[in-house]
Design a protein around this nucleic acid. Structure first.
Lengths: 187, 187
DNA sequence: GCTGACATGTAATTCGTTACATGATTAC
DNA sequence: GTAATCATGTAACGAATTACATGTCAGC
């Protein structure tokens, strides 16, 4: 359902094609939501069937024709309704394959885990750098369409990624220190 | 796939039924993985078809017969293989419906978002308290079966939840302050 | 002539949730 | 008797991934 409304929310800013939406997804919400292009196309069809958007075929500046989707009044209303819906528990999906591995690591032992955590820490530090650049990515869209009214909310959600990565780093550093104190040494 | 190996990992500690596994899931890995009982039963059947576990029917101390699953040597080998698999990108699934809402909040405005964030902050603070108790939950299992060799790894993964919640709290506080500074007032 | 970005889709499969169905045993 | 916990499953549905299929256009 989040993809459903994520697409609707972006189409509210500006009409665009599935291909365009995929790019914006990858550049903006990617750190808390990802979607395959095939899923986006499928979802757009569902959105149109539901009367939330309408589509027209338009010639592309480069390449084949595009199918441009536009949000309808009904779509706007349903987006707002979803945003304000207070009846359902809004989950933050914590499913984390990496943590599952850490949890089960007794089968491989502390030395192996230490090596895995060192690599992960390097990845987190890299994530932090990437986040610093994606934060400065917001102004870029201004050329394409007006996002002044979105800027505040985009910034707040992006900051979350920042805090998260920092906590991942703290956790990894703590865990590495802890394993080392226990006498484990990476292979 | 994580549920698959999560079940396998728990069965490596001790043979048990689907019902038992569900309880342990809820009490331990719950903060980074959840599973419905029906999915566990289905997955256990798949695990048996794949030769990772074998099952026997045993009388229960209370209630109807239990189907007890035991890990096989092949299952242990495959668990280890998965834990050491370095070829695939091990994702930390960041899909987060709540952040999607924050991101799209321009449709409802800063005042509404401020109210939503205040509620969320209260929830995070509550999560923190619950985590403090689940950390002291580990020793409990000692009576049932030996988890001495697991303790270290369970502790490290549980600590992650602790760091995460703290970063959620920091983010929510920062965002609330930020919205207030912008002159927004919750409805 | 080939690669890469542009552009749209379908089909099969996997993973996860919700609803449905059944029945034993224990404590009140 | 009745509610709660114990215990196992099936079926339908929904959400997401992967693989497959097709074709344009620009630049080298």
């Amino acid at each position: 359902m989040s993809l459903h409304f994520g697409l609707l929310g972006l189409l509210k800013i500006c009409p665009m094609s599935g291909y365009d939406l995929k790019k914006i997804f990858d550049e903006s919400v990617n750190f808390f939501w990802s979607a395959q292009i095939s899923q986006i196309y499928r979802e757009l069809k569902a959105l149109e069937r539901a009367g939330c958007v309408v589509s027209t075929t338009e010639a592309s500046s480069a390449g084949p024709n595009k199918r441009i989707y536009r949000i309808t009044e009904s779509g706007k209303a349903r987006l707002k309704e979803w945003l304000l819906d207070d009846t359902r528990e809004i989950g933050e999906d914590d499913r984390n394959e990496f943590l599952m591995r850490v949890f089960l690591s007794s089968s491989i032992g502390g030395n192996e885990l230490l090596g895995i955590l060192r690599k992960r820490l390097a990845k987190y530090r890299n994530d932090l750098e990437r986040l610093n650049t994606s934060e400065s990515n917001i102004p870029k869209y201004q050329e394409k369409f007006d996002i002044e009214s979105e800027r505040l909310f985009w910034m707040i959600s992006l900051r979350r990624g920042y805090h998260d990565v920092q906590s991942h780093i703290r956790w990894a550093e703590e865990s590495i220190r802890f394993l080392e104190d226990q006498g484990y040494r990476a292979p």
